[in-house]
């Protein structure tokens, strides 16, 4: 049972601010967790601490009930896929995948069997004799996955593994990684700054900002009930509208300073109306369009409408909302329950 527990982890780089600030989270056995956040939020540092590539300033990591952070990286039963794949350029795909096993004293025959199994799973069988320079980006990515896979680790760590691929391949690899992880049921932690990757792949996602864990929950929990204003603004595209309470014609909970509402929840049919504004810009996406509107006191709003909307610039924007779609935040940016 590979349950990964992080307790109060902090990382302070020499003389600098806290890169990671008292983060606690638990990854259940077989679960796929994404660490999501803007660059510099500490998500990669957190991952590297799990791998043992960085030391902990404070806190503790446990894997399957055993203390992990005092174990040297080579002895941790953890495999990592790097952003630039970090394949050994002078070894063939086979050599790359076999290297860890060789270092662990696995017999030659057993290595062959395990590498070939992994290669079959990843459709690499034809490519095992090639060197990394003779492989395409997606194939290198697969070899990097294979290198992690053959070790049969208790935990898989992914450090933005898809960010070097082009969009089409990224979408394909997203599905492949997810399916593979489902099949193998290996506990996985996946670092990304791409919310679509995080939302579509993860069982649960941890949103980080400035070293702190802002929210940890399932993708839908995070979308529907963002715990902080940062999470609300970071998740969702186009981003959530933040309005001042005075614009809203209804009573709001005590302490509310900002009200958030997603562009897709502003509709013509909404029960309560926003003051009418006019349309400044329309981004046509075919299946839908994003209308940029300006309300009376210069407040900007985004409204998502269907592709056949027939609006032009200068038209009035008159939309309404339902109360249960509102997200209220206090002066500290924390969610206020309605």
């Amino acid at each position: 049972m590979a349950r990964l527990e992080l307790t109060n982890i902090s990382k302070v780089f020499a003389g600098q601010t806290r890169a990671v600030d008292r983060v606690s989270l638990t990854v259940e056995d077989g679960e796929f967790v994404a660490l999501l956040g803007p660059s510099g939020c500490g998500k990669s540092t957190l991952l590297r601490m799990i791998a043992g590539l960085e030391t902990l300033t404070e806190g503790q990591v446990d894997l399957a009930g055993m203390r992990l952070d005092t174990v040297p990286p080579s002895k941790r039963d953890v495999a990592m896929v790097f952003q630039n794949y970090a394949l050994y350029p002078h070894m063939t795909a086979f050599g790359n995948m076999a290297y860890a096993l060789k270092n662990r004293g696995v017999t030659r025959d057993a290595i062959r069997v395990r590498v070939e199994q992994a290669a079959q799973l990843l459709q690499l069988t034809e490519l095992l004799d090639r060197k990394p320079s003779q492989l395409s980006g997606g194939q290198r990515q697969r070899v990097a996955m294979g290198r992690a896979l053959v070790r049969e680790p208790q935990v898989f760590l992914f450090d933005e593994p898809l960010s070097n691929l082009d969009a089409a391949l990224r979408g394909q690899m997203r599905v492949e990684i997810r399916q593979l992880q489902r099949t193998l049921r290996i506990t996985s932690v996946f670092v990304t700054h791409d919310q679509i990757e995080a939302m579509t792949m993860a069982d649960r996602l941890a949103v980080m900002n400035q070293g702190r864990l802002e929210q940890f929950g399932t993708p839908l929990e995070i979308y529907h009930r963002p715990a902080t204003q940062f999470v609300a603004s970071f998740i969702g595209s186009p981003p959530m509208n933040f309005l001042s309470p005075s614009l809203l014609p209804i009573p709001l909970p005590e302490g509310t300073v900002t009200v958030g509402i997603r562009p897709e929840h502003l509709t013509a049919e909404g029960a309560h109306r926003l003051p009418a504004g006019h349309c400044l810009l329309i981004e046509e996406l075919g299946s839908e369009a994003i209308v940029h509107g300006q309300l009376p006191d210069n407040q900007m709003i985004l409204v998502r409408v269907a592709g056949d909307h027939r609006r032009v610039i200068g038209d009035s924007v008159d939309v309404g909302f339902d109360v249960h779609h509102l997200h209220c935040f206090d002066a500290q940016g924390l969610r206020v329950e309605q």
């Binding site: 590539l53 990286p73 080579s74 953890v78 790097f82 970090a86 394949l87 270092n103 662990r104």
Partner: peptide, 18 residues
């Protein structure tokens, strides 16, 4: 030489000599 190569080797169980 990219640092990730060293890190990958460390995770693969290679000591300094290896």
């Amino acid at each position: 030489v990219p640092e990730e190569i060293l890190e990958a080797a460390r995770l693969d169980g290679a000591g300094p000599w290896k």
